[in-house]
């Protein structure tokens, strides 16, 4: 396949001759018109072949793939939007449930407070009554004690007065002393 160029002669004529002589490029092989028919024929065959392949198989397929992908993306986005809505709804429901639970808890706490208050009032009333009873009892006891103390004082005062009178040399009149002491004590 050894080909050699002698760049001496140029132009289409020379090239045509050279090509005819078995593969020596003289000048520009591009201008060798004897090969034009061949090239154009095979070019047309090639282009028609490519066109048929593209228009029958390749382009519809790629278009379909691209459309399908676009569809998938759109669907996925829609699904994502749907899920997002659901999530928002779920959150709302959760918040509502939480609020309800709070209200319920508050109500229970209030009820419990009222109940406890009622119990407490009863207990306080009971305690007050007990305290009142106790203090009444105590007062009574104190009054008794005071009364008994008074009597004791009377006796002691009478006795003391009798003794003092006796010591002073007088004869004590028991009745007079008693009245005197009583008057004094009342004083």
């Amino acid at each position: 396949m050894a080909t050699e160029t002698t760049a001496a002669t140029e132009g289409a004529q020379g090239a045509a001759e050279a090509a005819g002589n078995g593969g020596e490029a003289v000048g520009m092989p591009q201008l060798d018109f004897s090969t034009f028919g061949n090239q154009i024929f095979w070019l047309v065959v090639t282009l028609v072949a490519i066109y048929i392949v593209l228009s029958r198989v390749a382009l519809p397929r790629i278009a379909a793939v691209l459309a399908e992908r676009q569809g998938t993306i759109t669907n996925d986005l829609a699904a994502a939007e749907e899920l997002k809505l659901q999530a928002v709804k779920a959150e709302e429901a959760y918040n509502q449930a939480l609020a309800e639970a709070r209200a319920e808890a508050n109500r229970i706490v209030a009820d419990a407070k009222v109940e406890i208050k009622a119990d407490l009032d009863v207990a306080i009333a009971k305690a007050d009554a007990q305290i009142a009873a106790k203090s009444a009892e105590s007062e009574k006891a104190i009054a008794e004690i005071r009364a008994s103390a008074m009597d004791s004082i009377k006796v002691v005062a009478k006795d003391t007065a009798k003794e003092i009178v006796a010591a002073l040399g007088g004869k004590a009149d028991a009745k007079a002393i008693t009245s005197a002491v009583t008057t004094r004590l009342k004083g």
Binding site: T3, E4, T5, M28
Partner: peptide, 12 residues
């Protein structure tokens, strides 16, 4: 020096 830059364009 023998350079044949146009040989590659030959139609054969």
């Amino acid at each position: 020096l023998q350079i044949h830059p146009m040989d590659q364009f030959l139609v054969k």
